[in-house]
Design a protein around this nucleic acid. Structure first.
Lengths: 341, 341
DNA sequence: TTGAAAGCGCTAACAC
DNA sequence: GTGTTAGCGCTTTCAA
């Protein structure tokens, strides 16, 4: 049986409460007593037990991570990276992260168990989660941080992507390459990031006095996957003025667009250039490799945890938003690779 | 403040112990009292608190997942999937999974915190973890399951890959395609899976009366990544009898091999066929897409959790090994795609 | 600065 | 069947 705080106290010849003071760095202990206690702790290899401590402090040492099951199964690489980012940063702060998925639509019956059992000290929510669950967490008085999502209303702390800046980088890149007939393919317009990217595309065109034509700006129904991109291709090719570049709202759509083009023997980037957004793993292995915007996914997870711990310590005010920059990664889908010499 | 068991007891007009009996399905409660209690629970929206419960039962409701940091950062897609598999299955059994990484070599100083704080009821260990940490867990009396690793000695429960069967499938596939000059590229021979794959390759050749020539069986030093594959290519091409197919020990190595070949304008699969192992995400997006062996990674994670819970319930004996089958996925790196008609 | 003691919310003996 | 009660291992008043 492992040592308890009483064993340590006995061993050091002090009271239990003194040991507790030492453990918790409540500095009102004389150096010599502290030494005795530390020696006893070392000797007995003592470590306070989480549940006992949690029972009295009401702190579990865990964070919850809530994701809609939709996102998890389908946009796996993206949110998985965010989750792993939280894991690492959390451990650094001596927290563990409990992961759970919930259905898009809220129901009392599937409130995450870690909330019911008071097993988390804060919550991270990623993707388009229901407003109801946010409200529920607020009611519990738990601190929380949204990641890559911001609901229509309310004042929340969040880690967000600079979607607008990203799209503008891409448009600039393409115009610098001489493209002036740009198309856009988005999908899943429920997701604020998707809407922002579409909106930013229009703005970017306007800023450069390029024509904004609805017939080459597609926001597909349903999930933002490769299929959406593939389906958009025939529509885009019907445009009166032929397009020379396609800006996709994410990498999955871009891969579908490329496939659609290649099926029609349209060469990328020779005939039409293609860009993505997110820089997921497969972006670099696509053929041609995909020019895209790198979203620092792990970093977003880490930032979210940091913001959450800041909230717990009260060192930052609610409703803090952090917008992470994205970086243009130029690959072969826009720039012709130089022939090997 | 949330309701406690006393509130429920008071509300239902019974003793706390009765409420406890109801919660824990210890069926010695009369139907009418049970009903009263359940109503009170419902009314007050009561849920037992983890830490309070854990303090007395000595059960935390968590599993630990230990991975060497090496594997996590480098072979991310593979072990990440396994981890996600455990997450889902664990939640199904009302457990959460606490993830941690440790350095390859054991040190007292970095024993996972969840072990010290008695915050897990069982442990999953993935990849080449130190024998010391296994021993430590054994000493604690915690049940554990190894995933994709088996140490040289001892009797452990484990989820293992049918490496041998996989390699033999690949060799059969290649010989059926008419290849008779096969090469092998492995790396990271510390890892039992890697050793098994190499060994199986030799056996498979022998079984088919093909020549086993050391000059085309390479086990590279260091990490089993793309670089190892790329570096092996010039060595393989020096072989006296030219080879026609390369069996890589995993997909990462295979991708490096393909790159190395393509740099030399050797076409895959026209001139040389290439195969991988694992079927990680990028295998299908490589150009040409990679013929490989599908390892059911999430399933392995789920199986590990199931085996662990079985151990907790004592319904299975220690040292149970489950070998999961792998499935050949034929893609373009071995079979010429039919030209479109 | 240190110790004694109460109690966090729950389970599990043991009475009745 | 149900109630009473003693802790589980810790933190945190409150005295000394």
């Amino acid at each position: 049986m492992a040592a308890t705080i009483r064993d340590v106290a006995k061993h050091a010849g002090v009271a239990v409460s003194t040991v507790s003071l030492v453990i918790n760095h409540k500095k009102r202990v004389s150096p010599q007593t502290e030494l005795k206690v530390r020696e006893a702790i070392e000797k007995l290899n003592y470590h306070p037990q989480r549940s006992a401590r949690g029972l009295v402090t009401k702190r579990s040492g865990n964070f919850g991570f809530i994701l809609t099951s939709d996102h998890f199964s389908r946009a796996e690489p993206f949110y998985t990276k965010i989750f792993l980012g939280t894991e690492f940063e959390a451990r650094f702060h001596d927290y563990y992260v409990l992961l759970t998925t919930i259905e898009q639509q809220f129901s009392k019956r599937q409130i995450p168990r870690f909330l019911l059992e008071k097993n988390v000290d804060g919550v991270l929510l990623a993707g388009t989660v229901s407003t109801k669950i946010i409200e529920y967490i607020q009611q519990m008085g738990l601190p929380y941080v949204l990641v890559d999502y911001y609901p229509p209303s309310g004042n929340h702390s969040a880690i967000l992507i600079d979607n607008c800046g990203g799209i503008k980088q891409v448009v600039q890149h393409l115009t610098e390459l001489g493209h002036s007939r740009l198309a856009f393919v988005g999908a899943d317009m429920q997701h604020p990031s998707m809407r922002e990217r579409c909106q930013a595309f229009r703005e970017a065109l306007l800023e450069r006095n390029l024509p904004v034509e609805d017939e080459v700006i597609y926001c597909m129904e349903g999930w933002a996957g490769a299929q959406a991109g593939q389906q958009a291709v025939p529509l885009l090719l019907q445009a009166k003025n032929p397009i020379t570049a396609i800006v996709a709202a994410n990498d999955a759509i871009a891969s579908g667009v490329m496939r659609g083009l290649q099926e029609r023997n349209i060469r990328v980037p020779h005939d039409i250039a293609v860009t993505g957004f997110d820089d997921v793993d497969f972006a670099s292995t696509l053929q041609p490799s995909l020019t895209t915007l790198h979203v620092p996914k792990e970093e977003m997870g880490a930032l979210a945890v940091r913001l959450l711990t800041d909230h717990i310590h009260g060192s930052v005010s609610e409703g803090t938003k952090i917008v992470v920059p994205v970086q243009l990664i130029c690959r072969d889908s826009t720039v012709l690779p130089r022939p090997r010499t």
